[in-house]
Simulated assay, not measured.
Amino acid sequence: MNPLNHVAIIMDGNGRWGLKHQKSRNAGHKAGLKTVEKIIKESIKKNIKYLTLYAFSTENWKRPEKEKKFLFNLLENFLVNRIEDLHKQNIKLNIVGIKNFSKKLNLLLNFSEKKTFKNTKLQINLALNYGSKSELLYAFKKLNKKKEKINEKNFIKYLQTKDVPDPEILIRTGNTKRLSNFLLWQIAYTEIFFEKKLWPDFNENDYKRIIKDFMNIKRNFGNI
């Protein structure tokens, strides 16, 4: 059986789900949050140590102001109402990306990270205002500025995931088969699963099926 420490997820399809069911993209974002909680619980059951969720990309700033405001309010409410519970469950919250939000949201994110910093059951890497191309350019610039030798070991030091093992599994829901500027360096040897279901319809059984399929994959890493 393959070891599994880290699952990354592109949570695609919230807006489409909302339009389909309640004629509102925002309704889909709200429903998607329920799926997040289900997957967190199942990750703990499976003893997965890292869960990285693509919540808001650098490209998502192009979305309508009303939708962005709703998303940030949803995140603020989640942090206010649920961070204490996550802390009690020994869950660590880590933000991957640039905190370039409102003062209130930035403070909440910093508080949540600090409060849960020592927790060890599960680390949730929440990718907010994250873009892999920007991350890679930043790492190269840091190497150049510090005049360090360009090699894999030094390069990884400047990635936003420098203290996190690369994911063994990447899941993308929403019946879209692309990576959308997500963890391009880190998923070099990751097993990728594209799911037809929209994110709010994705459930524990889907998650368990993917994990089971992963366990049966022969992973060669260039070997035979």
Rank of each mutant, 00 (worst) to 15 (best):
N90A: 00
L184N: 12
L19N: 14
L137Y: 08
G18W: 06
E84Q: 05
L122R: 13
N110L: 08
T120S: 15
L137N: 15
N14E: 06
A8K: 01
I95V: 11
N60W: 01
P165K: 09
L109D: 00
K141T: 13
D163F: 05
T35K: 01
K208W: 01
K45H: 02
I169R: 00
S24R: 01
L105Y: 04
I48C: 00
N144W: 04
I156K: 09
I150S: 09
I150F: 11
F214D: 07
L109C: 01
K20V: 11
P64A: 02
I224D: 15
Y207M: 04
W185Q: 04
S24I: 10
K68D: 04
K34I: 13
I9M: 06
F56E: 02
I156A: 01
D12C: 03
E37N: 10
G97P: 10
N5Q: 06
Y158I: 07
K104R: 07
R16N: 02
I217N: 15
I187G: 12
L183C: 07
S134P: 10
N125W: 03
D12N: 04
E168F: 11
G18K: 05
W185Y: 14
K68Y: 06
F182M: 11
T190P: 08
V164M: 02
V7T: 13
P3Y: 12
F117E: 15
L107Q: 15
K153L: 07
K153V: 03
L136I: 15
S57W: 03
I211F: 00
K62N: 14
E195L: 07
P167K: 00
K147L: 13
K88M: 09
L107C: 11
K68Q: 06
F193H: 12
I40W: 01
I44R: 08
F155E: 08
L93E: 03
S24K: 08
A27R: 10
A55Y: 05
K141W: 06
S180C: 08
L136C: 07
Q89M: 07
F111I: 15
P200E: 00
K114I: 11
I83E: 12
L79K: 13
K41D: 14
I192T: 10
I39P: 06
G13A: 03
Y54I: 02
N5S: 09
F78I: 11
F194P: 09
N216W: 05
I98R: 15
N181S: 03
A27F: 04
K66A: 11
N119V: 03
